[in-house]
Design a protein around this nucleic acid. Structure first.
Lengths: 207, 207
DNA sequence: CAACTAATTCAACAAGCGTTGAATTAAGTG
DNA sequence: CACTTAATTCAACGCTTGTTGAATTAGTTG
């Protein structure tokens, strides 16, 4: 293959992908139009269909994550157990502040509108990231789902306020400050006393 | 006014408003189409323009919140200072599980796509809800914005995981269980030691 | 009843969307 | 050079969106 193309040139595919990532993460799947992406890439809209097929396939291609949670999980696990919360927050901020985080923002924005994207988020966050971490920590299975949910609630809230809603000062705060504030919270959710661990669902009394 | 209308009948205005609230909170501003709202209300699409003007005006009318944060703030403030975190979470869940919460979900979904809605969320969450609470607690002004951001990050994450992404078991957990898990976190964010309270922004070292 | 007004219906508009297919250009291969 | 194949351009399709304006219906008032 690769016939009829100058060797060193990748044509406009990369430009489209870059523009797609930018637009998808900034506007979400629906609001980011194929025409706008093409315009930002300096390309005819039909090129997108030519290279990627449909808009949804472009979305998937743009989100093909260079992030492998496994490496991050094992990195967070190595070190003193008492600091695992701070290490998780630190790692988390580094990933989300990197270009790879843009893909996450895109899929999260889209998750607000489409169930198929919400399902994508659920699967990734829990099964690929948090649950392996909890397993590595040796958290009992019957506690893992609840603890994992708590961690997800605090970290997704960080994403929401820092990158989506852009609350100040948390949106511009240096990593260290955020880590010091959220570290203990995550630590407690992972390994500490979080009510409901004994009787996970006490009864239907409670609301 | 009110001429030419049968007294006891509110016509289709209420049906449209109810359908609008349902669709906006479930899909967000863009994905909820005027035609779909009209269909659910059993009404011609042009009736919406006739009654409300534009789609955006319908959105505002549907969101006209029956929620006055002031009452909730003073309710949370009354009681032992050591339990203010749990009381806030309890109150928070009650409001968001009520029909009034649907309006919040709608504006939050829309905030993911439109800056004007994100600004609405910022203004409401901070200036109307959290900051008055912090002022009532006597939190110093230079700490208030940071503590408020932390509270917002955890509570918005709760909204995200419980109502938008619908992570289980947190999405179906009884109030008491959530309160016991998040209460201490909120308590610490409001009144405890959250690093950065001394030097709010230490330096640009940190990431 | 006649007059007036609000509510409702219906058809259509302009604009934007994703997508398609046919033509044209460019580049590497025999 | 001729051949092939990918890249690019251009115009257009079918569809959905929010919105409009002209007709029609219904109910209250004088």
């Amino acid at each position: 293959m690769n016939r009829g193309r100058r060797p060193g040139q990748v044509s406009s595919r990369d430009a489209v992908l870059r523009a797609a990532r930018e637009q998808f993460s900034r506007k979400g799947y629906d609001a980011a139009t194929v025409r706008a992406i093409a315009a930002e890439a300096g390309v005819d809209p039909s090129m997108i269909n030519h290279h990627f097929g449909t808009k949804e396939q472009l979305f998937m291609a743009a989100l093909e994550s260079p992030v492998d949670p496994k490496d991050h999980v094992s990195a967070v696990l190595s070190g003193p157990r008492a600091d695992v919360g701070e290490r998780l927050v630190t790692r988390f901020l580094t990933v989300w502040d990197s270009p790879a985080g843009a893909a996450g923002v895109a899929v999260l924005r889209t998750a607000m509108q489409h169930e198929w994207s919400a399902a994508l988020v659920r699967e990734f966050i829990l099964n690929r990231a948090i649950n392996p971490l909890l397993a590595g920590l040796g958290v009992p299975a019957e506690e893992a789902s609840w603890r994992g949910n708590l961690v997800a609630s605090q970290l997704s809230g960080l994403i929401l306020t820092r990158y989506l809603i852009k609350l100040e000062p948390i949106a511009s705060a240096p990593h260290a400050v955020v880590v010091r504030a959220l570290g203990p919270t995550i630590q407690r959710y992972l390994t500490g006393n979080v009510a409901g661990e004994r009787p996970v669902l006490v009864s239907e009394a409670g609301d």
